[in-house]
Amino acid sequence: MIIQLDSTISTPDKEAIISRIRSLEYKTTEVQTQRSAYIVAIGKRDFDIRQLGQLSGIADIHRVSDDYKLVSRKWKIGRTSVNLGDGVYIGDGSLAIMAGPCSIENEEQVQKTIDHLVKNGVRIMRGGVFKPRSSPYAFRGLGIDGLKMWHTLARKAGIKIISEVMQVSQIAEMHDYVDVFQVGARNTQNFNLLDELGKVDKAVMIKRGISGTIEELLYSAEYVFAAGNEKLILCERGIRTYERASRNTLDVNAIPILKEKTHLPVVADPSHGIGIREFVEPVALAAVMAGADGIIYETHQEPEKAASDGQQTLDFEESSRLIRRLQQASILLHEF
């Protein structure tokens, strides 16, 4: 059960609500986010929720059977839209496009990518400065200095930044230089990291784990929401299966299922989802037609020379074509 409290609720009224809930043998957890205050009540006893709804200080009350209550669509009719500022949204009904290199390499690369995005009307740039790599000898990013350089160039062009945070200690130093914290597939169940990201007033995009279920992804989002952050985005990026013909298996099924289960925006990552450059475009288009709120993919001026993931990275010509086709697919979908 989720109880949304009035913004002007008094302390005595809140205490009376909690006391009444506990008298029904329900456990209560208070959640204060950027947008509202909630009480999450867990219990098995059946009762008429009108007994609570009549109490002073309650704005709304809902029964939610899902264990992931706050991110469940069962209590929130309208879908969540994440506002990144300056007219940039994810989940507002338009298709959000996020593109950039796997790794931020140098100032020239960043500027060329920004120029490419601006030319094509894309407002969000992805890129890694802290890179989790399977091999300890692979390029692992430029770190915070690279992020500061990127931020300076991006701000001049009106571009928003999404970048991966790998550990709790990086949150504070990255905070002023990113618009969206990305939680990578390897950290989807790093609950200490999720808890801390729940305490910041920045958007968070959580990628599905390498072998994670849809339910586990929703539980991860619940950690962030319960800790106080409603600015959440979910990302289907492909899962590890027995199939060896592609890097991963992009679960297109997950997109409509997530849209049915949660009010949060859902985006897809076709670059990691299939891992083969020539197939990124059809997979991205399939994700849009499945209902994705956004697409995040990798592009580089010279993929063959990219520091990482060149085999799945589009060059700028391929990227421009993909952007046009994504926009056409989104328009077509809304005409149905």
Rank of each mutant, 00 (worst) to 15 (best):
F191D: 00
M166A: 11
Q327K: 15
A329I: 08
K305V: 02
M125L: 06
D6Y: 10
G158Q: 08
I159N: 04
A287H: 11
G146V: 01
I21F: 09
T299P: 02
N120F: 11
Q4S: 11
G146F: 05
I255E: 01
G43T: 11
V129R: 07
K131H: 12
E281P: 08
N187I: 00
G273M: 04
R325E: 15
L24W: 11
D269P: 09
G127L: 02
L193G: 03
P136D: 10
L52T: 04
E317R: 12
I58R: 11
S56R: 13
S246K: 13
Y223L: 00
F279A: 13
F191H: 09
I257N: 01
G275Y: 10
I276M: 04
I61K: 06
T80K: 14
E196W: 08
G43Y: 13
A292R: 01
I276R: 01
G228T: 00
P12C: 12
N248R: 10
C102R: 01
D13C: 07
F225Q: 01
M289D: 03
I77S: 14
D13H: 14
R155A: 04
Q301K: 03
S103N: 11
T152L: 08
M174E: 02
P136H: 10
L55D: 05
R240K: 15
L234I: 11
I210T: 03
V129A: 08
K231D: 07
I2M: 09
V288E: 08
S271M: 04
L70G: 00
G127K: 06
S134P: 08
F130L: 09
M125W: 06
L285T: 06
S271I: 03
R244L: 14
H334V: 00
I276F: 09
G212A: 15
K74W: 06
D293I: 03
R140G: 07
H151V: 02
G141I: 08
Y89I: 00
V40L: 12
V267A: 04
I239A: 15
P101T: 01
N253L: 15
S103Q: 07
D67C: 03
T241M: 15
V180L: 04
S320V: 01
P270L: 07
E105V: 03
V129P: 10
I124S: 05
N248C: 07
T188K: 00
L314I: 11
I49P: 14
H263V: 05
F316W: 08
E196M: 09
M205R: 04
G85N: 02
L258F: 11
V129L: 08
S103K: 02
G100P: 07
A99N: 14
V71Y: 05
P282G: 09
E335H: 15
A99I: 13
I39T: 05
A286S: 14
A221M: 06
I97K: 15
I161D: 04
S7V: 06
P132A: 12
K148R: 14
F139Y: 15
M149I: 02
T113K: 13
L258Y: 05
C102P: 09
L5W: 11
G91L: 04
I323E: 12
H62K: 13
G78A: 12
G127H: 05
I61H: 09
D48Q: 14
I171G: 01
I61Q: 07
D6I: 03
R79D: 13
D46G: 06
S271Q: 03
V71E: 03
F181C: 03
